[in-house]
Design a protein around this nucleic acid. Sequence first.
DNA 1: AAAAAAGGCAACCGCGGTCAT
DNA 2: AATGACCGCGGTTGCCTTTTT
Length: 322
Amino acid sequence: MDEKGRTLKNNNMEDEMDLKRGPWTAEEDFKLMNYIATHGEGRWNSLSRCAGLQRTGKSCRLRWLNYLRPDVRRGNITLEEQLLILELHSRWGNRWSKIAQYLPGRTDNEIKNYWRTRVQKHAKQLKCDVNSQQFKDTMKYLWMPRLVERIQSASAAATVATTTKTTTTTGSAATSSSNTTSNNQFMTYDYNNNSMGQQFGVVNNDYITPDNSNVAVSPMSDLTEYYSAQNTYPEYYSGQVGNNYYPDQDLVVPQILPDNYLDYSGLLDEDLAVMQEQSNLNWFEDINGATSSSDSLWNIGESDEDLWFLQDQQQFNNNGNF
DNA sequence: AAAAAAGGCAACCGCGGTCAT
DNA sequence: AATGACCGCGGTTGCCTTTTT
């Protein structure tokens, strides 16, 4: 027993025997999947025994939830998912399980790993703590808006492709048309009007269901689904005249404003000024200096993802604004 | 080409909460 | 009410792969 009275060793006789640890074999996976297919999940310790597995119940549960479950989503974290993770983490911190509820098919483990590898890497490159205000500001004012931009342009490109494919218009006409009339205008991030919060940052429980155990994983992200929802539920959106969309005046979402709505509307020039003053801009200067030195941190594994960051920082240095 | 370092990720561990007896 | 088993969460570890030197 430990100091709190808990048993340190599991009393179950089965667990006294040699239990297998480490990576799962295909045969073990097969046993586990087969058993769950016929008997369902839960009661993991007895499940493990009955399935003929020399594993702890915990191990079986983990293997099932993080890997074998049919609705586990594979592949890279999408831009939309990245945006959601950053946003939800800013709100809830390391509540991985809670965050994972809003990313169907993604496990808390995966999100946690994403955070630890990708996000903390950026913090490291900026030579600041991942929990510091400085880094939070970087995420909020640089990273997330940039993600929105990238989502927007990717979406626009997809629309162009679709339009070109399904109409007989010329390529240039199709491009021009889609740039001004597609749903993607909804995604427009207006740096001057600072209206991002009204266009993204909305996690709508109507569209992102925490209980995804029986929901087929859509190839389309939930965020995208939400954005396109303005067509399905036009009553939530008003004031759109023709194809002209004016973010600040037109979007009306009070009825569905969710609990976890993240308000970016307060992002004003004054806020930026305060932010800059508080951080004394030292980190921007550091970045600027680093770019011209041979051991620039931006040279570390320079991918597209890292480059945009550099570009934004430089733009800020040059203009003093975004 | 080989060694070292870093990255990525699956799996494990301890803890606290809940449930069943 | 007390106890032990189970469950789920968040932190951490360790191994395999990839990148860098």
